[in-house]
Amino acid sequence: MSFFQAKEFSYHIGWRSRGRHAGRHASVQTGLGMEFRGHAPLIAYPDPRRIDLRQTLRDPSEQIFVRMFNQKSSIPVYALCDLSGSMGFVGERSKLALAAEIAASVAYSAYRVSDPFGFVGFDDMVREDWLFTSTTKVHGAFDLTDRLGDYRPSGGANGLLDADRFLSRERSLVFLISDFHMPSALLEQALGSLMRHHVVPVVLWDGAEYRKLPEFGITSVTDCETGARRTLFLRKGYRERIAQAFEDRRQMLQKLFMRFDMPPFFVEETFSADALTEYFYQFVAA
């Protein structure tokens, strides 16, 4: 997906950035902003443009005071993408092509508000050939997402346990893109390692995995716990059990993510940037 085709969505955070670079988000940094922070002596904060005459005249020690403001700052934004075998599923469309579209949208949306963007791909390890260093110059990220749509993944998802080491030390907004067909214990441990960041789990499922299976006949399905592909002879009862297993998995994922205060965003076959904007209005205080 090219730079000009990427869809933009709006995001905001419910915490204060510690970033020193100017941006669009509430910050703890003192600077040229509009949010009043308090007063300080001119000698401690030498900016004559901010002298407050009223506060100065009220001070019995006759110090000169200036007004201090918090600036708006940038935050690091990442797409953390699952490249394990289950992401190779192709139903209504390729899961990795969908992941590439979402990652490109994240990169473009970050670029539009001057936030640096980075990409981390993992399967059984974090893949050095699928790393994009956090930067505001994101054109290279679109070259990576173009490659992602044609990639043939394999292996498991154990690399998620090490992903935190490749993210910024500063608190970041992380879009964790996966079908989450991985062992629950692994996912729970990985979410614990990511708790210092603001994580948005983007869950990629496809109706062809469970809702649109044939009523009768031979088909290939994905085990919703291990991600393994299996060939099955379907009957009505078996088809219903597969659908129920996915519904149980959905509920389990929702409960697990909410335990870590990470509301999931489910995407089935079609990505809507407007729906992701609505997600932030629903779950993150403006």
Rank of each mutant, 00 (worst) to 15 (best):
G91F: 05
V126A: 11
A157T: 05
H197C: 01
L160F: 01
K95C: 09
R165M: 09
S184M: 12
S134I: 01
L144R: 06
L148Y: 11
M68H: 07
A97W: 03
S73W: 05
S172F: 05
T145W: 08
V90M: 09
R67Q: 14
M68E: 15
D124W: 05
L83N: 07
A163V: 08
M68I: 14
R67Y: 10
L173A: 09
Q63T: 12
P153T: 07
S74H: 03
Q63I: 07
F175D: 06
E92F: 15
R93K: 14
A141N: 02
W130H: 12
W130N: 10
S114T: 13
G192R: 11
V90C: 11
F117I: 10
G118W: 00
F117L: 10
D129P: 15
S94E: 10
V77N: 10
V138P: 00
G155T: 12
H197Y: 04
S193W: 11
G156E: 03
V113N: 13
R171E: 07
G155I: 11
S86R: 08
Y78N: 04
F142H: 03
S94R: 14
D124C: 01
S94A: 13
S134M: 01
E170C: 06
H197T: 02
G85D: 04
G149K: 15
S109G: 09
R112P: 07
D123H: 15
V126W: 08
C81Q: 05
E188G: 00
F65E: 02
E101L: 13
S105P: 05
I177E: 12
D82N: 03
G88V: 08
R147L: 12
D82T: 06
L80P: 08
S94V: 11
D115R: 00
L98A: 08
S94T: 13
L176K: 04
R196S: 14
V66E: 05
R127E: 11
F119G: 04
R67M: 09
F122S: 03
G121A: 04
F65Q: 04
R169Y: 14
V138F: 02
G88L: 01
R152K: 15
D146C: 09
A107D: 11
F69E: 08
